[in-house]
Design a protein around this nucleic acid. Structure first.
Length: 542
RNA sequence: GCGCCUGUAGCCCAAUGGAUAGGGCACCAGCCUCCGGAGCUGGGUGUGACAGUUCGAUUCUGUCCAGGCGCACCA
């Protein structure tokens, strides 16, 4: 929706209220109407101020509308507003003219793919950290969902004008890595005929044998390092095949070697946020809202996981990022408060770090749940999803629920090439449009367009849907969640299919055909951009 | 025990505090001499329970009930 109309209307309503000695009290907002029976733009201002003013909402609305109509008579707004009505409990509804929507569509066509861009985030630097799985095994389905969500959100923020970097924090040392090394070593001994006792808490997965075999031929000395390198290669390939690329891989090992952990702890100590007790060093996180204080250096002298993480996040700020967004698995949710405490201890505001918990996706086959166990190395991997479903359908599926909600992912449904599968519904709309646009007899030419020929209900509805794109982008920004985009794309595809079914593009009078080609080109742009942001392909043929 | 997530029609799910709560599946009945039928049209007494906040609650708060997940000087 074009901003100048909205802001002029807001000013108009504001002025009208003043003339009647009513004060909006900062409560005035003008919103898009989802239900076309009630116009295009609406405000509930009369409802919100009725109690304070002691007048009924409907009475206020009617009075305001009368004033608005007088004011509007001599204003250029008049051409865009066909009606203003007081409806329902006292809403003021604006009905916009077709001409207004024709201008919006014209704008989309002129801008092309750039129509989705905005300057909302101009000058703001954002670091999105996601996946960050330990390099001790192939990525799981949980990581896959984090990858889908983080990458899509990054794409969305980039189009909103933010300066975005994507980062993977690499836990390349510590307990788990040592265990990985020992696991490989033990499997190697086993392979060479030795009888070994393989501990329960070691990595049981079959892939350890593969690494052991590779290590054998390479005459490896440090099995941990070798294992990390090997698995990192797998992870990078998996992510690449999934269509996710990181700008930076941040190594924990290099963080420690740089001395930044000591510096960060030194900073906290200086501020008086650290103390010793029972031989360990504690961070006074309770001063910043945590339930209890947390250990940063254990009594054996080694760091807890928190220590490098504190340093890591201090480093993120030092690198100049204004907003940090972390996607974490649900097992880390208890960890949010202590990291936020650390951020507060650095003097950063609470909202400069957003932590998003990506809930698990349960995998189903033909309606039946698939059992998983990380410990025994029995879990559905990203690789299996890629092999079985492919990147397109799976990336869309992972984002079909709110990121913070559980998701049931049925592999058989995702594979289906029928209307049961929403991915194909959306892609099909795109392919249909391309099929018309690629028609050899008529070529779309934006010169001399007469969009005023578009006046059928389905045509106007489709334009409205196309123009909701930026509105959806803003919802994704405020929720830091790309999932509304999947909902929107399904609605957009539906609008197109309805138009397509009722009206023909080709074979009309030349100028009507051209206007409708413009309409479907607009729909194509919106579908194509939306799918691209989600990391889903836009087939021209299916 | 504590924390997080979730309860919407037979099943799967939508709805940035708004108006008559919307789609899909399944089921029934229709729609291609015509741009791709992977589509469209019609068929429905549904928000777990009880309070509270609000002009207005599926949405916010509290207490229950039910399901999923997590609780380290592990990473």
């Amino acid at each position: 929706m074009r901003k100048d109309i909205q802001s002029s209307l807001v000013t108009l309503i504001e002025d009208s209220l003043k003339k009647m000695d009513l004060d909006s009290g900062g409560l005035l907002s003008l919103e898009l109407v989802q239900d076309s029976r009630f116009g295009d733009l609406t405000t509930n201002i009369a409802l919100r101020i009725s109690k304070r003013t002691g007048r009924s909402p409907l009475e206020i609305s009617k009075a305001v509308i009368e004033t608005i109509k007088k004011e509007m008579a001599g204003s250029p707004l008049k051409g865009y507003i066909t009606d203003v009505k007081a409806e329902g409990a006292g809403f003021i509804n604006f009905y916009l003219s077709n001409g207004y929507f024709h201008e919006l569509l014209k704008d989309v066509i002129e801008k092309g793919r750039d129509f989705i861009k905005s300057g909302t985030g101009k000058g703001k630097r954002v670091l999105i950290e996601f996946v960050s799985a330990n390099p001790t095994g192939p990525l799981s389905v949980a990581h896959a969902r984090q990858a889908a969500a983080g990458d899509a959100l990054a794409n969305i923020l980039i189009n909103l004008g933010f300066d975005v970097k994507k980062e993977y924090y690499l836990n390349d040392e510590g307990n788990q890595i040592n265990i990985l090394g020992r696991s490989i070593e033990l499997r190697l001994k086993e392979l060479s005929g030795e009888k070994v006792e393989f501990p329960e808490d070691h990595y049981q997965g079959e892939y350890i044998y593969d690494i052991a075999k590779a290590a054998k031929s390479g005459k490896v000395k440090n099995f941990s390092e070798f294992g990390v390198e090997y698995i990192l290669g797998i992870i990078k390939k998996e992510l690449e095949d999934f269509g996710v690329r990181f700008d930076n891989w941040f190594s924990q090992k290099s963080l420690r070697e740089s001395g930044k952990i000591e510096k960060a702890l030194g900073f906290l100590k200086e501020k008086g946020f650290l103390y010793e007790q029972e031989g360990a060093l504690w961070f006074k996180s309770t001063e910043f809202g945590d339930d209890k204080d947390r250990v940063v250096i254990k009594s054996d002298g080694s760091y807890t996981y928190l220590a490098p993480d504190i340093a890591y996040h201090q480093d993120k700020f030092k690198r100049g990022f204004d907003l940090l967004i972390n996607f974490w698995g649900p097992d880390h949710h208890g960890y949010i408060n202590r990291l936020k405490a650390a951020v507060a201890a650095f003097g950063k505001s609470a909202d400069s770090l957003s932590i998003i918990i990506v809930q698990l996706a349960s995998i189903f086959r033909a309606g039946k749940p698939v059992q998983m166990s990380t410990r025994r190395g029995q879990y559905i991997t990203l690789r299996e999803i890629l092999d079985e479903v492919g990147a397109d359908a799976s990336r869309f599926f992972f984002l079909m629920r709110r990121t913070s909600s559980h998701l049931d992912f049925d592999l058989d449904v995702a594979k289906k090439q029928t209307s049961e599968n929403p991915v194909y519904y959306v892609q099909y709309a795109h392919a249909r449009i391309c099929s018309i646009l690629n028609n050899s007899s008529v070529k779309f030419d934006p010169k001399g367009l007469d969009l005023s020929l578009l006046k059928e209900r389905e045509e106007i509805e489709l334009i409205k849907k196309i123009c909701q794109f930026s509105y959806i982008m803003n919802i994704c920004l405020t929720t830091l969640d790309p999932y509304m985009l999947t909902v929107y794309l399904q609605a957009l595809a539906e609008s197109f299919h309805k138009f397509y079914d009722k009206h023909r593009v080709l074979g009309q009078q030349d100028d009507l055909t051209m206007a409708r080609l413009a309409l479907i080109e607009g729909a194509r742009l919106a579908l194509s951009c939306g799918l691209e942001l989600l990391g889903v392909s836009r087939p021209e043929k299916m």
